[in-house]
């Protein structure tokens, strides 16, 4: 996402360090990628909050006031994300390799004028979106990466 040149240079630096792009900054990626995401997405602020147990939560506030949270498990992988804001976030980056699944499961035929929010329900990926222009929200998680007792309703 090329929004600020300064961040672009960070992006280039990051990729130059041979971080695998597809896995580095997204659902299923390593926790360090949450920080990199914040840079790439020109976040206005970024905080790391230790949540209960070994779970930690990275919170980004975007330039448009939107919020993105990335939930990191005990082995440092992002197992869930949530977003909310006036526009859609860069889901291609946030979902990483899972974005293709999200798109494929919601391909154009299914829309047919039924303007229902896209979603994915698979054993290894759940995505739920909603809202309307000016107020979008959603969440995604990897059931198999989530800590025991994970409750998506608590995100």
């Amino acid at each position: 996402m090329i929004k600020h040149k300064r961040c672009l240079s960070v992006l280039i630096a990051a990729t130059t360090l041979a971080l695998p792009v597809a896995a580095s900054a997204s659902l299923g990626g390593v926790s360090d990628s949450a920080r990199i995401d914040a840079q790439r997405m020109a976040a206005r602020s970024h905080s790391l909050i230790a949540a209960s147990g070994s779970v930690s939560v990275h919170t980004m506030v975007l330039a448009n006031g939107g919020t993105i949270r990335q939930y990191v498990n005990a082995v440092g992988a992002i197992y869930a994300i949530t977003w909310q804001g006036p526009g859609k976030p860069d889901l291609a980056r946030l979902l990483g390799p899972h974005f293709a699944t999200f798109q494929a499961d919601n391909a154009s035929q299914r829309r047919r004028l039924f303007r229902a929010p896209p979603r994915v329900m698979r054993s290894d990926l759940v995505v739920q979106t909603g809202g309307h222009p000016g107020g979008f929200w959603g969440l995604a998680y990897l059931p198999q990466q989530a800590p025991a007792g994970f409750n998506p309703n608590a995100l």
């Binding site: 494929a104 499961d105 919601n106 391909a107 035929q109 299914r110 829309r111 047919r112 004028l113 039924f114 229902a116 896209p118 979603r119 329900m121």
Partner: peptide, 8 residues
């Protein structure tokens, strides 16, 4: 429409 959404 909805089916296509779930099973294109």
């Amino acid at each position: 429409m909805l089916t296509a959404m779930l099973a294109p």
